[in-house]
Write a protein that binds this DNA or RNA. Sequence first.
DNA 1: CTATTATACTGTGCGACACACAATATTATC
DNA 2: GATAATATTGTGTGTCGCACAGTATAATAG
Lengths: 115, 115
Amino acid sequence: MLENDQLQSFLTELRRGSLTLAVLGCLKQPHYGYALLQTMQDKHIDIEANTLYPLLRRLESQGLLVSDWDTSESRPRKYYAINEKGEAVYQELLNEWRKMQRNIESICGRDEDNE
Amino acid sequence: MLENDQLQSFLTELRRGSLTLAVLGCLKQPHYGYALLQTMQDKHIDIEANTLYPLLRRLESQGLLVSDWDTSESRPRKYYAINEKGEAVYQELLNEWRKMQRNIESICGRDEDNE
DNA sequence: CTATTATACTGTGCGACACACAATATTATC
DNA sequence: GATAATATTGTGTGTCGCACAGTATAATAG
Protein backbone atom coordinates (compact mmCIF):
# COMPACT_ATOMS: atom_id res chain seq x y z
CA MET A 1 0.00 0.00 0.00
CA LEU A 2 1.44 3.35 -0.98
CA GLU A 3 1.82 6.00 1.61
CA ASN A 4 -0.43 8.73 0.41
CA ASP A 5 1.58 11.25 2.36
CA GLN A 6 4.68 10.27 0.43
CA LEU A 7 2.97 10.68 -2.91
CA GLN A 8 1.56 14.04 -1.82
CA SER A 9 5.04 15.13 -0.86
CA PHE A 10 6.33 14.38 -4.34
CA LEU A 11 3.36 16.18 -5.89
CA THR A 12 4.03 19.24 -3.78
CA GLU A 13 7.53 19.34 -5.17
CA LEU A 14 6.18 19.10 -8.70
CA ARG A 15 3.99 22.10 -8.07
CA ARG A 16 6.80 24.34 -6.94
CA GLY A 17 7.66 26.70 -9.70
CA SER A 18 4.74 25.51 -11.81
CA LEU A 19 2.29 27.57 -9.81
CA THR A 20 4.37 30.66 -10.50
CA LEU A 21 4.18 29.97 -14.21
CA ALA A 22 0.43 29.47 -14.09
CA VAL A 23 -0.14 32.66 -12.08
CA LEU A 24 2.04 34.80 -14.33
CA GLY A 25 0.22 33.37 -17.32
CA CYS A 26 -3.18 34.22 -15.88
CA LEU A 27 -2.17 37.74 -14.95
CA LYS A 28 -1.61 38.87 -18.48
CA GLN A 29 -5.20 39.93 -17.78
CA PRO A 30 -5.57 41.79 -14.47
CA HIS A 31 -7.33 39.80 -11.77
CA TYR A 32 -8.12 40.41 -8.17
CA GLY A 33 -7.10 37.69 -5.75
CA TYR A 34 -10.36 35.92 -5.20
CA ALA A 35 -11.27 35.88 -8.92
CA LEU A 36 -7.85 34.48 -9.74
CA LEU A 37 -8.55 31.72 -7.25
CA GLN A 38 -11.70 30.88 -9.22
CA THR A 39 -9.90 31.07 -12.55
CA MET A 40 -7.23 28.70 -11.32
CA GLN A 41 -9.92 26.28 -10.09
CA ASP A 42 -11.56 26.46 -13.52
CA LYS A 43 -8.25 25.51 -15.07
CA HIS A 44 -7.93 22.64 -12.58
CA ILE A 45 -5.01 24.27 -10.85
CA ASP A 46 -6.26 23.54 -7.38
CA ILE A 47 -4.62 26.15 -5.26
CA GLU A 48 -5.62 27.22 -1.77
CA ALA A 49 -6.16 30.87 -0.88
CA ASN A 50 -3.42 30.50 1.71
CA THR A 51 -1.01 29.59 -1.05
CA LEU A 52 -2.19 31.98 -3.74
CA TYR A 53 -2.26 35.26 -1.78
CA PRO A 54 1.27 34.91 -0.41
CA LEU A 55 2.44 33.93 -3.90
CA LEU A 56 0.90 37.09 -5.36
CA ARG A 57 2.58 39.23 -2.74
CA ARG A 58 5.87 37.48 -3.21
CA LEU A 59 5.79 37.95 -7.00
CA GLU A 60 4.95 41.60 -6.51
CA SER A 61 7.81 42.08 -4.09
CA GLN A 62 10.04 40.38 -6.62
CA GLY A 63 9.03 43.08 -9.10
CA LEU A 64 7.06 40.89 -11.53
CA LEU A 65 3.55 42.11 -10.71
CA VAL A 66 1.89 45.41 -9.97
CA SER A 67 -1.20 45.84 -7.85
CA ASP A 68 -3.80 48.43 -7.02
CA TRP A 69 -6.93 48.57 -4.90
CA ASP A 70 -10.42 48.91 -6.31
CA THR A 71 -12.65 50.16 -3.54
CA SER A 72 -15.61 51.18 -5.67
CA GLU A 73 -17.47 47.94 -5.07
CA SER A 74 -19.01 46.87 -1.82
CA ARG A 75 -15.89 44.91 -1.07
CA PRO A 76 -12.38 46.21 -1.63
CA ARG A 77 -10.46 44.17 -4.18
CA LYS A 78 -6.76 44.06 -4.85
CA TYR A 79 -6.06 43.75 -8.54
CA TYR A 80 -2.81 42.27 -9.80
CA ALA A 81 -1.32 42.41 -13.27
CA ILE A 82 1.95 41.30 -14.79
CA ASN A 83 4.38 44.06 -15.68
CA GLU A 84 7.09 44.31 -18.32
CA LYS A 85 9.72 42.64 -16.22
CA GLY A 86 7.24 39.95 -15.27
CA GLU A 87 6.44 39.39 -18.92
CA ALA A 88 10.12 38.89 -19.70
CA VAL A 89 10.62 36.47 -16.82
CA TYR A 90 7.44 34.67 -17.80
CA GLN A 91 8.60 34.11 -21.38
CA GLU A 92 11.96 32.81 -20.24
CA LEU A 93 10.34 30.50 -17.71
CA LEU A 94 7.85 29.24 -20.25
CA ASN A 95 10.64 28.47 -22.72
CA GLU A 96 12.60 26.60 -20.08
CA TRP A 97 9.48 24.85 -18.86
CA ARG A 98 8.74 23.62 -22.36
CA LYS A 99 12.27 22.37 -22.83
CA MET A 100 11.98 20.54 -19.55
CA GLN A 101 8.71 18.93 -20.60
CA ARG A 102 10.26 17.66 -23.80
CA ASN A 103 13.31 16.38 -21.99
CA ILE A 104 11.24 14.53 -19.44
CA GLU A 105 9.01 13.14 -22.16
CA SER A 106 12.09 11.81 -23.89
CA ILE A 107 12.66 9.74 -20.77
CA CYS A 108 9.15 8.95 -19.65
CA GLY A 109 7.42 8.69 -23.00
CA ARG A 110 4.76 10.88 -24.52
CA ASP A 111 1.23 11.04 -23.23
CA GLU A 112 -0.14 9.06 -26.16
CA ASP A 113 2.29 6.20 -25.54
CA ASN A 114 0.88 3.25 -23.72
CA GLU A 115 3.20 3.56 -20.80
CA MET B 1 17.91 43.91 -17.53
CA LEU B 2 16.73 40.76 -15.87
CA GLU B 3 18.45 39.49 -12.85
CA ASN B 4 19.83 36.17 -13.94
CA ASP B 5 19.90 35.03 -10.34
CA GLN B 6 16.18 35.60 -10.07
CA LEU B 7 15.44 33.60 -13.18
CA GLN B 8 17.72 30.81 -11.98
CA SER B 9 15.85 30.74 -8.71
CA PHE B 10 12.57 30.20 -10.51
CA LEU B 11 14.13 27.50 -12.68
CA THR B 12 15.43 25.70 -9.61
CA GLU B 13 11.90 25.56 -8.27
CA LEU B 14 10.68 24.15 -11.57
CA ARG B 15 13.22 21.40 -11.33
CA ARG B 16 12.12 20.26 -7.92
CA GLY B 17 10.03 17.18 -8.31
CA SER B 18 10.79 16.96 -12.00
CA LEU B 19 14.22 15.53 -11.40
CA THR B 20 12.66 12.79 -9.29
CA LEU B 21 10.38 11.86 -12.16
CA ALA B 22 13.24 11.78 -14.63
CA VAL B 23 15.42 9.64 -12.37
CA LEU B 24 12.68 7.13 -11.62
CA GLY B 25 11.96 6.93 -15.34
CA CYS B 26 15.59 6.22 -16.16
CA LEU B 27 15.95 3.58 -13.49
CA LYS B 28 13.48 1.18 -15.05
CA GLN B 29 16.82 -0.02 -16.39
CA PRO B 30 19.44 -0.42 -13.66
CA HIS B 31 22.21 2.20 -13.77
CA TYR B 32 25.14 3.00 -11.61
CA GLY B 33 25.48 6.59 -10.48
CA TYR B 34 28.05 7.91 -12.86
CA ALA B 35 26.41 6.29 -15.92
CA LEU B 36 23.07 7.76 -14.90
CA LEU B 37 24.76 11.13 -14.80
CA GLN B 38 25.82 10.60 -18.43
CA THR B 39 22.38 9.35 -19.44
CA MET B 40 20.75 12.43 -17.92
CA GLN B 41 23.21 14.67 -19.77
CA ASP B 42 22.35 12.87 -23.02
CA LYS B 43 18.68 13.62 -22.34
CA HIS B 44 19.58 17.25 -21.67
CA ILE B 45 18.66 16.96 -18.02
CA ASP B 46 21.68 18.81 -16.80
CA ILE B 47 22.16 17.57 -13.30
CA GLU B 48 25.27 17.86 -11.17
CA ALA B 49 26.79 14.88 -9.41
CA ASN B 50 26.28 16.69 -6.10
CA THR B 51 22.57 16.74 -6.82
CA LEU B 52 22.16 13.29 -8.37
CA TYR B 53 23.96 11.14 -5.80
CA PRO B 54 22.04 12.57 -2.81
CA LEU B 55 18.80 12.21 -4.79
CA LEU B 56 19.55 8.53 -5.45
CA ARG B 57 20.26 7.90 -1.79
CA ARG B 58 17.19 9.80 -0.74
CA LEU B 59 14.93 7.85 -3.11
CA GLU B 60 16.43 4.61 -1.85
CA SER B 61 15.84 5.60 1.76
CA GLN B 62 12.28 6.47 0.78
CA GLY B 63 11.89 2.88 -0.40
CA LEU B 64 11.54 3.54 -4.15
CA LEU B 65 14.91 2.25 -5.31
CA VAL B 66 17.13 -0.68 -4.51
CA SER B 67 20.88 -0.66 -4.87
CA ASP B 68 23.78 -3.08 -4.86
CA TRP B 69 27.50 -2.80 -5.33
CA ASP B 70 29.33 -4.25 -8.31
CA THR B 71 32.97 -4.62 -7.32
CA SER B 72 34.04 -6.87 -10.17
CA GLU B 73 35.39 -3.99 -12.27
CA SER B 74 38.48 -1.96 -11.49
CA ARG B 75 36.23 0.60 -9.85
CA PRO B 76 33.37 -0.26 -7.52
CA ARG B 77 30.02 0.87 -8.87
CA LYS B 78 26.74 1.28 -7.04
CA TYR B 79 23.84 0.16 -9.20
CA TYR B 80 20.35 1.49 -8.62
CA ALA B 81 17.05 0.20 -9.94
CA ILE B 82 13.44 1.07 -9.34
CA ASN B 83 11.44 -1.41 -7.29
CA GLU B 84 7.75 -2.31 -7.25
CA LYS B 85 6.81 0.47 -4.90
CA GLY B 86 8.89 2.90 -6.89
CA GLU B 87 7.14 1.81 -10.06
CA ALA B 88 3.75 2.51 -8.48
CA VAL B 89 4.81 5.93 -7.22
CA TYR B 90 6.35 6.66 -10.61
CA GLN B 91 3.13 5.88 -12.48
CA GLU B 92 1.08 8.04 -10.15
CA LEU B 93 3.56 10.91 -10.41
CA LEU B 94 3.66 10.64 -14.19
CA ASN B 95 -0.13 10.75 -14.38
CA GLU B 96 -0.26 13.81 -12.16
CA TRP B 97 2.64 15.39 -14.01
CA ARG B 98 0.81 15.01 -17.30
CA LYS B 99 -2.38 16.47 -15.90
CA MET B 100 -0.36 19.39 -14.64
CA GLN B 101 1.23 19.91 -18.05
CA ARG B 102 -2.17 20.01 -19.71
CA ASN B 103 -3.53 22.37 -17.10
CA ILE B 104 -0.63 24.76 -17.45
CA GLU B 105 -0.87 24.56 -21.22
CA SER B 106 -4.51 25.55 -20.97
CA ILE B 107 -3.30 28.76 -19.36
CA CYS B 108 -0.04 29.40 -21.15
CA GLY B 109 -0.85 28.01 -24.55
CA ARG B 110 0.54 25.02 -26.38
CA ASP B 111 4.08 24.85 -27.62
CA GLU B 112 3.03 25.24 -31.24
CA ASP B 113 1.12 28.43 -30.53
CA ASN B 114 2.88 31.62 -31.41
CA GLU B 115 2.86 32.89 -27.87
C1' DC C 1 57.67 8.81 -13.01
C1' DT C 2 54.82 12.95 -12.34
C1' DA C 3 50.84 15.71 -13.27
C1' DT C 4 46.32 16.06 -14.76
C1' DT C 5 41.86 14.41 -15.90
C1' DA C 6 38.23 11.30 -15.48
C1' DT C 7 35.65 8.19 -12.86
C1' DA C 8 32.84 7.24 -8.79
C1' DC C 9 31.21 8.31 -4.73
C1' DT C 10 29.81 10.60 0.26
C1' DG C 11 28.72 14.55 3.61
C1' DT C 12 26.45 18.83 5.03
C1' DG C 13 24.29 23.47 5.26
C1' DC C 14 21.38 27.04 2.99
C1' DG C 15 17.62 29.42 0.58
C1' DA C 16 13.13 29.38 -1.29
C1' DC C 17 8.33 28.00 -1.63
C1' DA C 18 3.98 25.12 -1.20
C1' DC C 19 1.52 23.96 2.49
C1' DA C 20 -0.76 24.29 6.83
C1' DC C 21 -2.52 26.72 10.51
C1' DA C 22 -4.56 30.91 12.00
C1' DA C 23 -6.91 35.01 11.62
C1' DT C 24 -9.94 39.36 10.41
C1' DA C 25 -13.79 41.61 8.19
C1' DT C 26 -18.01 42.05 6.02
C1' DT C 27 -21.48 41.12 2.49
C1' DA C 28 -24.95 37.91 0.89
C1' DT C 29 -28.10 34.31 1.62
C1' DC C 30 -31.34 31.52 4.09
C1' DG D 1 -29.79 35.50 13.66
C1' DA D 2 -26.94 31.98 11.67
C1' DT D 3 -24.32 30.37 8.00
C1' DA D 4 -21.80 30.67 3.81
C1' DA D 5 -19.33 33.27 0.65
C1' DT D 6 -16.22 36.79 -0.45
C1' DA D 7 -11.69 38.86 0.20
C1' DT D 8 -7.70 39.39 2.37
C1' DT D 9 -3.23 39.10 5.62
C1' DG D 10 0.23 36.76 8.83
C1' DT D 11 3.54 33.14 10.11
C1' DG D 12 6.06 28.71 10.81
C1' DT D 13 7.52 24.13 8.88
C1' DG D 14 9.26 20.55 5.86
C1' DT D 15 11.49 19.45 1.74
C1' DC D 16 14.93 19.46 -1.97
C1' DG D 17 18.03 21.47 -5.58
C1' DC D 18 22.07 23.74 -5.12
C1' DA D 19 26.56 24.82 -3.47
C1' DC D 20 30.52 23.84 -1.07
C1' DA D 21 33.61 20.37 0.41
C1' DG D 22 35.71 16.18 0.28
C1' DT D 23 37.95 11.17 -0.63
C1' DA D 24 39.85 7.67 -3.61
C1' DT D 25 41.95 5.84 -7.51
C1' DA D 26 42.24 4.52 -12.38
C1' DA D 27 43.42 6.31 -16.88
C1' DT D 28 45.82 9.38 -19.70
C1' DA D 29 49.37 12.64 -21.19
C1' DG D 30 53.92 14.26 -21.20
